[in-house]
Simulated assay, not measured.
Amino acid sequence: MPRVSRKQADLNREIIVEAATRLFRERGLHGISVVDVMAAAGLTHGGFYGHFQSKEALAREASERAFKEVGTRWRERITQGDDKAAARQALIKPYLSVYSRDNPGESCPVVAFAGDMCHEHADSSLREPFMAGLNRLLDALGELMDSDDAAEKRQQALVQYSLMVGALTLARATRGDALSEEILEAAQNFLTESPAPD
């Protein structure tokens, strides 16, 4: 069987990472196998180890990609707002939407990966991209707080983002029941209609 060109190999690798990024967000970092990823990529699983040393190496890269995608999306949404309150709304409303709930493969990697991180050792290679990505999102949200005090902005971002993550998680867990939309609406209203919590 002829070897694939370098260009084709690079394209195949990109297809694998893209498929894994979506699947890991849908099912968690430990919820899929190499066979699942390669099938989603439209490739045979035998070629996986020509691109990655292990599933964990792919999971790390997919996690980094997921956080990068969300970071880019957040920056785009922030620029839509005329002021900090409008920029917060531009982040919060899509985050706490039915679309976000129903499309985990395109949505928040924190919600997707947090459960897995609970079972990872402190020195796990998977924790590094998770922690770095989470802190970047918290920093971006913190810049939209009205306070001039850095510690207070951080505190407000922690509270608001925790509510966002929790509400989206619960909305997914209750999908199919009216409670799901009720959770999304209540969290969205609290975060966008009331002043930022002290």
Score class of each variant (00 low, 15 high):
R3A: 15
R3L: 15
R3Y: 14
S5P: 09
S5C: 11
S5L: 15
R6S: 15
A9Q: 15
L11H: 14
N12I: 00
R13P: 05
R13W: 12
I15W: 10
V17C: 05
E18V: 14
A19S: 12
T21Y: 01
R22V: 14
R22G: 02
L23Q: 09
F24L: 02
R25Y: 08
I32K: 08
S33Q: 05
V35I: 08
D36C: 11
A39T: 13
A39E: 14
A40Q: 08
A40N: 04
G42L: 00
H45N: 13
G47D: 09
G50M: 09
H51Q: 12
F52W: 06
K55T: 07
A57R: 11
L58I: 03
L58F: 00
L58R: 02
A59W: 02
R60Y: 00
A62N: 10
S63I: 08
F67V: 06
E69F: 10
V70C: 01
G71H: 07
T72E: 15
E76N: 15
E76M: 15
R77K: 06
T79G: 05
D82R: 15
D82I: 13
D83T: 11
D83K: 05
K84S: 03
A85P: 06
A85Y: 03
A85M: 10
A86S: 14
R88K: 10
R88P: 06
A90R: 01
K93W: 01
L96I: 10
S97K: 02
V98I: 12
Y99M: 02
Y99I: 08
S100R: 04
S100T: 06
R101G: 03
N103L: 03
G105V: 10
S107R: 02
V110W: 10
V110K: 03
V111S: 02
A114D: 09
D116H: 10
D116I: 04
D116C: 03
M117H: 02
M117Y: 07
C118I: 14
H121C: 13
H121R: 15
A122T: 14
S125Y: 10
F130R: 08
A132V: 10
G133T: 09
G133E: 10
L138F: 11
L138M: 11
L138W: 09
A140L: 13
E143A: 14
L144A: 05
M145T: 06
M145R: 05
D146W: 05
D149L: 01
A150I: 04
K153I: 01
K153E: 04
K153Q: 13
R154Y: 00
Q156S: 02
A157V: 05
L158D: 08
V159M: 15
V159F: 11
V159N: 05
Y161F: 15
Y161I: 05
S162P: 02
V165K: 01
A167Q: 06
L168S: 03
T169L: 14
T169Q: 13
A173V: 06
A173D: 13
T174V: 01
D177Y: 08
L179P: 01
L179R: 08
E181S: 12
A187D: 04
A187H: 04
Q188M: 08
F190H: 07
L191V: 03
L191Q: 03
T192N: 04
P195V: 07
P195K: 13
A196D: 04
A196R: 07
P197N: 02
D198Y: 06
